[in-house]
């Protein structure tokens, strides 16, 4: 395991300290927690937004704390959802009395821990709503199972719900627009290499020298298919087709596109992917309103990427365009 760390057990706390030291103009850490909040939290007259999950997805989620996006982010151990008490600390730190929206990715652990925190908060009289992001079309959506996973599309939920909250909207309105994003965003990822959880000390799975995994989850959960190495164009085609199939866009729909790197895929390759993605969308007469290329929701040092498409309407466009000022996302 080749990592720039000190002690596998301390990576989350040291990361949070280094993060707050780097961005004191944006964020502070709630004492004795693994909670990052806006430096001016709780913001009066504003619904608070709390997201979070296991660490290892940086800049998610702390990187999106700031004006126009999140009020608080809770960091669990690497790839392990945070505990209810930590989420509860975040809720308390960001609630200005207008209520708090929890943005949860659809993993059993995340859902249960955030739900328990919501119960704790409600029992103390804090209004809490929650939305569950499940954008990953690599997994079948079914009511009999856990359903689809939440991946990079979550960042667009942060952005748009954050803009809505910043406008002074009510908890119900913020929840509603967050759900609208969730209904209109789809993603799918793939991986070329595995990643290593520091305290595990070895890769979470293995992929042959000439293989890639299509549909890979952001914790290294296996995907749909193990294939030989394909070209960037072929990969883009597989991922985007599956996303579009599920999204069912009409011609001349407007969309936002996110090409997200999983940790060790160079920007160069993400732009090569975007080259094909943008060509395909143009070919289908879909208008690309905005494109995001970079690392937003990573899997430690996994090589690979995901593609997300969000169908826009006028309301979503206005909120997407609104100011955001966070360590990892500025508009």
């Amino acid at each position: 395991m080749k990592k720039l760390i000190n002690d596998p057990e301390q990576v989350v706390q040291e990361m949070l300290s280094g993060f707050v030291a780097a961005h004191p103009q944006y964020v502070r850490q709630v004492q004795n927690t693994s909670v990052i909040v806006r430096v001016d939290a709780p913001v009066q007259g504003k619904v608070g937004l709390v997201s979070g999950g296991g660490s290892g997805h940086e800049p998610s989620h702390g990187g999106f704390v700031g004006k126009g996006m999140l009020d608080g982010a809770v960091a669990g151990e690497v790839f392990t959802s945070p505990t209810p008490d930590q989420v509860f600390e975040a809720i308390k730190a960001v609630d200005s009395g207008k209520g708090v929206l929890l943005i949860i990715k659809n993993y059993t652990g995340d859902v249960m821990n955030f739900e328990m925190a919501a119960e704790l908060a409600e029992s103390e009289g804090i209004k809490v709503a929650k939305v569950i992001v499940n954008d990953d079309v690599a997994v079948e959506d079914s009511t009999y199972t856990t359903g689809r996973r939440g991946i990079a599309g979550t960042v667009l939920v942060h952005k748009i719900a954050g803009a809505m909250a910043e406008k002074g909207a009510s908890l119900e309105e913020v929840e509603q627009v967050a759900n609208k994003v969730i209904q209109n965003v789809r993603s799918m990822g793939m991986a070329l290499t595995p990643c290593t959880v520091p305290s595990a000390g070895k890769p979470g799975f293995s992929i042959g020298e000439n293989e890639m995994e299509i549909g890979m989850g952001i914790h290294g959960e296996p995907g749909i298919e193990r294939t030989e190495i394909l070209t960037a164009n072929e990969v883009a085609e597989i991922l985007l087709s599956k996303v579009l199939e599920d999204l069912k866009l009409e011609e001349s729909s407007k969309v936002a596109v996110m090409v997200n790197g999983l940790g060790s895929t160079p920007l160069m390759e993400l732009y090569i992917m975007n080259n094909k993605v943008s060509q395909m969308l143009k070919g289908q007469n879909i208008e690309i309103y905005q494109t995001f290329v970079g690392e937003f929701m990573t899997s430690i040092e996994m090589a690979g990427c995901s593609i997300s498409v969000l169908k826009l309407d006028d309301e979503l466009i206005e909120l997407l365009d609104a100011e955001a000022n966070t360590p990892a996302f500025r508009k």
Binding site: E77, S81, P82, P84, G109, M112, N113
Partner: peptide, 12 residues
Amino acid sequence: LLTKVGGASGPL
């Protein structure tokens, strides 16, 4: 367990 484990197994 609730405050130290996290994941699915912590709450369960």
